[in-house]
Amino acid sequence: MHPAIQMTGRSRNTSFLVEQSRSGLAELAVWTILLLAMFLAPGRHQLLSEIAIVALFVLSLDLIMGYAGIVSLGQAAFFGVGAYSAGLVAIYVTSDPVIGLLVSAAAAGLVGFATSFLVLRGSDLTRLMVTIGVTSLLGEIANKATGITGGADGLQGISIGPLLGLIPFDLYGTTAYGYSLAILFLGIVLARRIVGSSFGLSLRAIRDNQLRASAVGIPVNARLVAIYTISSVYAGVAGALMAQTTQFVSLDVFDFHRSADALLMLVIGGTGYLYGGIIGAGVFKLIQSVLSDATPQYWHFWLGLLLVVLVQVGRTRVIRSIANLLGLGPRQISPQANDAKMSQPR
């Protein structure tokens, strides 16, 4: 448990909150790198835009897993809902990207709210299965509703108007990267406000010990529903960005691989400090491009080996030592409390 939670006295509590929401040097460095990439890697904007979108998607998973302790292998459900909503809005309503984004966020949030009641009960395993099941169901619906979604052919004919009525999307993905990066920035700023608030602290209390959290008067179920809905909005926005920047949506938005990869990226980047998504997505895509260049057919083998080694050596140890090296520091990386809760003493 974080020592500050045990502190009494108003001033020390609030100073803890202020400290939580202050931006560090490392954060500044991350954003500088991401911005500089805009100019230093002109030929790579497509890839960079993809990384920014995936980072937002992983962030959505971090919100429920890193902060609220809900393990999910079905985050792709909301990604898919967001992507299809954005595509449909662009085809039938308006080509304005921002309106499409807002509609998709609302749609994904609605689905997230409706399904959040399914993850309140049961063990980790039940949650994994239910989230996988919900994703597969939505995927089946998209597959069968060919009249609306285009089925296995995908949703074609999406055209997106210029951003804010001014900046048109180009072939090289430059606008796409700027757009995705801006949304990712907004997402992170908002997420910081959320997890640094008393609401966010109550989530961490629930993650660390659900029984004690309810004993001190935290409405556990309401808080979990709220964060699950927020997280699904994030995932939906990521899906919408994907649909708008690639101007195509296919059934693979609901793929199991997408949820599993997000989980891997989050673990590579580290849970519970918001930047795990960006770091994980960057490292993952980098590894993917290097390995798939070297052995296009078998790169999953090396990815698997990496995972096995990571777990065997001790993932918290690896990630924490790298994070310390980068100066992100132990202050922001919370201990893997949800693991501690589930494991037995050695």
């Binding site: 393990v71 980790d124 395993l125 994994l128 989980l263 891997l264 673990v267 995972l307 096995v308 990571l310 777990v311 065997q312 993932r315 893997q336 949800n338 693991d339 501690a340 809760k341 589930m342 494991s343």
Partner: peptide
Amino acid sequence: GHLDQVLF
């Protein structure tokens, strides 16, 4: 924890 087992 379960998460490590899933990843492994």
